[in-house]
């Protein structure tokens, strides 16, 4: 039995001649919140549509709970709840009617509709026409629709789009609750790392259809090596001296030089030889890029 809720093996997908997904090997562990990150147009939504069999993948490339998707479409879809792009809602029906319609399609009790409305905080707007809903309310209804069948796996494509800060926090907490208490697996896509770095246990970074990083959030942080930033009066002269002493210079500006941070003692050594050679060091500090910049760096190099 596979330990992955989702596994793709060297998946390629084209729209005509344009390659959208290239050699993608996703591995989403069961019970994880997998942050699927990438800039707009990176291939996130296409990948999610492939995972839902809305776009046909080549045989033996996509496995959900260990089963091949093309030959087990219905059995797999029974275990997935999804929200793809803008929530798909029948505008002429109320929020409650939209949920009841989904209950009909899934063959589940209509009373589940009220439960979902309460869960996503739409009980008061249950009978309002959903075309009159705000963007945030539509998004919540979309999440309610995704959850109504009590699926084991949730695919959420930018679920916090259009939500206010309170709404974003609510969705975050809901995701954590669903995985910790209800043992669900969530794949959530976003173009902002900051948005999911607090909830995701695993991260996959995709750009131009290629997976650039995949691992736990801690592994991502390990990639992020700290730097020693030195503020000095004569940058040009100090740079030559630092390089002569065998250190690599990562970045250099008019007033600052950055070298890889090794240890506190090493920082002290650098400070000492700079002063001994007549430079004035005005500040010495350890810097770490935030994940957002790291994300930008990873996607920029591809």
């Amino acid at each position: 039995m596979s330990n992955f809720a989702i596994e793709t093996v060297g998946l390629n997908f084209n729209f005509g001649r344009q390659a959208i997904v290239k050699d993608l090997s996703l591995q989403v562990p069961k019970g994880s919140i997998y942050g699927f990150l990438g800039p707009n147009g990176a291939g996130k939504t296409t990948t999610i549509k492939i995972l839902l069999n809305l776009l046909k993948s080549p045989a033996d490339r996509v496995f959900i709970f260990g089963k091949e998707i093309n030959s087990n479409r219905i059995a797999i879809l029974k275990r997935i709840g999804s929200l793809v792009e803008q929530p798909a809602i029948y505008g002429h029906l109320s929020g409650k009617e939209n949920l009841i319609n989904r209950c009909l399609l899934l063959g589940i009790k209509k009373s589940k509709a009220d439960e979902m409305l309460a869960l996503v905080g739409l009980t008061d707007a249950a009978d309002k026409k959903s075309s009159k809903y705000s963007l945030g309310m539509k998004q919540r209804l979309g999440i309610g629709l995704a959850l109504v069948s009590d699926p084991k796996l949730l695919l959420l494509d930018e679920p916090t789009n259009g939500l206010d800060p309170n709404g974003i926090i609510e969705i975050r907490n809901l995701m954590i609750e669903l995985t910790t208490k209800h043992n669900k697996t969530i794949l959530v896509s976003s173009h902002l790392l900051a948005e999911i770095e607090r909830t995701a246990t695993h991260v996959g970074i995709i750009n131009k259809g290629q997976l650039l990083f995949q691992g736990t959030i801690q592994e991502l942080q390990l990639l992020n090596k700290p730097l020693l930033e030195i503020e000095v009066n004569n940058v040009a002269g100090a740079s030559i001296l630092i390089q002569e002493k065998g250190y690599e210079i990562v970045t250099k500006t008019d007033s600052k030089i950055s070298v890889p941070f090794v240890s506190k003692t090493e920082s002290g050594t650098i400070n000492t030889f700079l002063i001994q050679n007549g430079f004035t060091v005005t500040s010495l500090s350890q810097q770490r890029k935030d994940l957002e910049n790291l994300f930008l760096d990873i996607t920029k190099t591809n």
Partner: peptide
């Protein structure tokens, strides 16, 4: 048109139905 207008083809075909 009820599906085209509401962009609901994708959810309809993502349901566990033939």
């Amino acid at each position: 048109n009820i599906e085209h207008k509401n962009d609901t083809w994708k959810t309809l075909f993502a349901q566990p139905l033939h």
